[in-house]
Design a protein around this nucleic acid. Structure first.
Lengths: 328, 328
DNA sequence: TCAAAAGTGTTATCCTTACACCCATGT
DNA sequence: ACATGGGTGTAAGGATAACACTTTTGA
């Protein structure tokens, strides 16, 4: 009896990777073209007996599909896959597959980035998340549509719903919190404002005027990416993961551009530099970069031993208030 | 071909729960007595087709094994189970089972806690994690044993190893970081200072003088609990999860005692209160608790709507420096 | 000489930490 | 009266956010 039950409950494990790189101040995610399903997907594949560990399985699949070798890897979340309503607290599983998602960070030479056309900009998928030039005009549109009666899901009254929208999207008097990328995507999904909602319910997408925002991915991969973005935006504040994305030598401006690319908000130059200096995260290599267009910048390298010295090094990036004001 | 491979790669999913409650200023975890394996274990069981969601499966198993209904649940981590060396970055999997661990918080009336003998104090399992009365004397012993030559694993040189120990255990000049509970357990495991190390390698435990520290659990359950402790200690600082553990009405002292129980460090009374007040986390019920032994305390309740108003409410607990000084 | 980007010095403000003290009740 | 725990006011220190400014190169 027990044996039969256990046999029946065996499921496939899918390993899915969010592989992130930054180039020229833009954040990218590694994607593959799916043969069977339509559209673009994250690299992924099933766990097979040949894989010695979960991470090894992930590495193997990513390398096979994209030729990209992974360095830094961390687990993101485990999803009960292919749910009819994936955004609810309890997600339905179909007992065929559970997918374990990972976040990987790679530092990539510029030419390789250009060679492979499979690197997709984050902000093509999440246009509203890029506020480096102030909030995108799209946000007002989304805000209005979220407040339209049709969008309101099962929330009791209108005031509470509005407050929830303001809270998550940083509208009204509330500040934008760049870490809430996942919550924002899930709210848009629940409100039917992204393509995936309709696809998952076997409905045709709504009229063009109410067209979904941002490029969509196969299955729930855009949601998984949103999970990775939120995690990464939070993590750079307390762990020096930023340096996994940098080349061996870099200037402080490049470092700041990278932090801004991930966070999606403009940072204050002097304070950013002080933070880096105070925490002793970098040291000068002695060289200078002359291709800056202005005064040459000192080249820096990451000090590997900070991990041993400091309690929890990282960049507590903080928004430039001037830029934030421009927003509202 | 594809089909056969997929068939062979199907594995069992184990759902494991870290169920936490606090009573009388002590943190507890829900455990069960295992029939087959010796010793105490966390509630857990395999995912079966009857389960509509992963969380539903978890709830079902916990309720069946302990009669405890779960409210707040969050996913912790997914482990490649039964590894020969579970503490390495890539964990080996035996392709029979992968276990998904969850953290659950319950608020329990005092009598129920006493009724069920299955609630185990955290600090019976992790004696070194309780520093509410200053650092336990055990820490010096552990520190010495970690610095003994036998403990040093594959680290290159002795200075680096010592720094790593100081870093994780807050010895030397470095401060104690209560959130590093998982890293501490993993270091003790790697150094062979807990029972599980020897059990996992089919070795007899070492001599009594080098006896392992703390009560052990079945399988890798103590590690899973350590993961939960670390997560919880971090999370109370930025999300109001503390209130999931409180009864509907409570005094500010009880709230502080609960925060201290989880964090394992003494907190500063006035600052704790100011923090709670500033963030508008609670409101007075009007009642008072007269069984305080001194002046009666006002009864409070959690303000449910903070979740909507504030960006990210929580208690950024900070150590009382006087107590920390007593430590070193 | 000017644009463009690197890099520095200084100040106002807020939050954190800690001290010291007062209040209300039971014994 | 006094012990016990509840509750408050306020000052010192440090981190943060922002300002304005100087420096060094290429065109």
């Amino acid at each position: 009896m027990v044996d039969r039950q256990q046999l029946e409950s065996r499921v496939r494990i899918d390993l899915t990777a969010v592989v992130v790189a930054v180039d020229a101040g833009q954040p990218y995610v590694l994607t593959v073209d799916t043969d069977d399903a339509p559209g673009i997907a994250l690299p992924s594949g099933p766990l097979v007996p040949g894989h010695r560990t979960l991470q090894a399985g992930l590495r193997a699949w990513v390398e096979a599909q994209t030729k990209c070798r992974l360095e830094y890897i961390e687990q993101l979340y485990t999803f009960g896959d292919r749910t009819s309503s994936p955004m609810e607290a309890g997600e339905e599983i179909d007992h065929r597959a559970v997918s374990i998602a990972y976040l990987a960070l790679v530092s990539m030479p510029t030419d390789q980035l250009e060679m492979q056309a499979h690197w997709l900009s984050w902000y093509a998928l999440f246009p509203w998340e890029d506020r480096r030039e102030g909030p995108s005009p799209l946000i007002n549109d989304l805000h209005d549509r979220l407040l339209a009666p049709a969008s309101q899901t099962v929330t009791r009254n209108k005031r509470v719903w509005r407050q929830r929208v303001d809270h998550i999207f940083g509208t009204g008097l509330l500040p934008w919190d760049e870490e809430r990328a996942l919550e924002r995507y899930e709210m848009l999904y629940a409100a039917g404002l992204v393509e995936e909602t309709h696809r998952d319910h076997d409905q045709p997408p709504p009229s063009a005027s109410a067209a979904a925002a941002g490029v969509s991915l196969a299955a729930d991969h855009r949601r998984i990416l949103a999970t990775g973005i939120s995690r990464l935006r939070a993590k750079i504040k307390y762990r020096p993961v930023l340096f996994e994305l940098m080349p061996p030598e870099f200037t402080l401006s490049q470092l700041q551009k990278t932090a801004e690319a991930l966070s999606g908000i403009p940072l204050h130059k002097q304070n950013f530099r002080r933070l880096v200096e105070q925490q002793n995260l970098v040291e000068e290599t002695g060289g200078v970069a002359t291709d800056t267009g202005g005064r040459p910048a000192k080249l820096m390298r990451f000090r590997e031993d900070v991990q041993l010295e400091r309690p929890s090094p990282g960049l507590r990036v903080s928004a430039n208030r001037r830029a934030r004001a421009r927003a509202s």
